[in-house]
Structure formats: structure tokens, C-alpha cells
């Protein structure tokens, strides 16, 4: 039951990540900006690259479901998760670093400016980052329940 749930989660998240990646690719070609619900924004200079990275990560997740060996599935999902984390993590870092320097004569932001910098909207990868990490943690726990992850193969 838990296995099925995890596979469903991988498939669903994979599809979402592919959709986000495709949207970023499409918008990078048209040069437009899109705000969804005032919370998510598709914009910035490197949309094409973000689109490529997220699109590939989504494909890796979906295609991981075709693999039989659970260790290999986990490795491929982890690879995709690292890619999503790089894009999302860099957005978070940029948000933090840009919130610190102050305006005008102040070297450091006031508390109000600092908090205001986190008001959003955010890049979609910021939302995908925790989802992908939760998925990897769930896979780890599930694998531990099944007696660990190591499998043995005969060498060449």
C-alpha cells in the first residue's frame, strides 16, 4: 500500500515538475512573465535554463517508475530531487541575500524591509523544493522498512 502511494507521489510530482519546466521553457521563448494566484511567478533571466533543468527532473521522476529495482528508482528520484533543490535552493539563497543590504544611507535593511523582501510572489521551484525532499525522505523510510537499500550484483 505504502509502495503504491509513493509511486503515485513520484508520478504526480513528476508531472507537476514537467508542467512547470515546460511553462518556463515556453515563457522563456515568448519573453513573457506569468503570475499565478499572486503567489507563484514565472519570470527572471534564466527561465530557459530553469525550464530545461526542471523539465528533465520531471522526466527522470516519471521514467523512474519504469525501473524494477527499488534502489535504482530511489537513485533516479534522488537525482531529480537534487536538480529541483538546486533551482529552488538558489532562489531561496537569492531571496535571503537580497533582503540583507539596506536602502539609501542604511547599510543593513530595517526589520520591515527585511520581512517585506519575503512577501512573494515566489518562483515555482521554491514550492517544488520541499515537496521533492519530502518524497525522498518518504522513500528512505519505506526502504528502511523493507530492510535497507543495498542490493548485490555480480560484477563484470
Amino acid at each position: 500500500m505504502k509502495d503504491k502511494l509513493i509511486r503515485l507521489a513520484i508520478f504526480t510530482l513528476g508531472l507537476i515538475v514537467i508542467s512547470v519546466g515546460l511553462m518556463e521553457l515556453l515563457l522563456s521563448l515568448t519573453g513573457e512573465t506569468l503570475v499565478v494566484g499572486g503567489v507563484i511567478v514565472f519570470s527572471g533571466s534564466f527561465m530557459l535554463w530553469r525550464g530545461l533543468v526542471l523539465g528533465s527532473a520531471g522526466v527522470f521522476m516519471v521514467f523512474a517508475l519504469r525501473i524494477q529495482n527499488p534502489v535504482e528508482v530511489k537513485a533516479q528520484v534522488l537525482l531529480a530531487s537534487i536538480m529541483i533543490s538546486i533551482v529552488g535552493g538558489m532562489e531561496v539563497l537569492d531571496l535571503i541575500l537580497s533582503s540583507i543590504p539596506g536602502e539609501g544611507s542604511r547599510w543593513i535593511s530595517t526589520a520591515g524591509e527585511f520581512v517585506g523582501a519575503y512577501g512573494g510572489p515566489y518562483q515555482p521551484a521554491v514550492f517544488l523544493l520541499p515537496l521533492s525532499l519530502i518524497l525522498v525522505v518518504a522513500m528512505n523510510r519505506n526502504m528502511a522498512d523493507h530492510g535497507g537499500e543495498t542490493s548485490h550484483e555480480q560484477g563484470r
Binding site: W49, A75, Q76, L79, I82, I86, V87, T150, S151, E153
Partner: peptide, 30 residues
């Protein structure tokens, strides 16, 4: 016999062109 772990498979995925190139793009982006 060769031990296959998530880490060893992950290491292999990063040098296979199909998975390694998009991953390299992600690293370069980061």
C-alpha cells in the same frame, strides 16, 4: 560481487549522457 547502493547508482547516473548532461546543466545553473 559488487555492492549496489543509491550512492553508487547516483554516481553512475551522473556520467551517463542521458541523465548526466541535464544534471550537469543543473549544476552549471546552480
Amino acid at each position: 560481487g559488487e555492492e549496489t547502493t543509491t550512492k553508487s547508482i547516483l554516481a553512475e547516473l551522473t556520467v551517463k549522457p542521458a541523465t548526466g548532461i541535464p544534471f550537469a546543466v543543473a549544476i552549471l545553473y546552480g
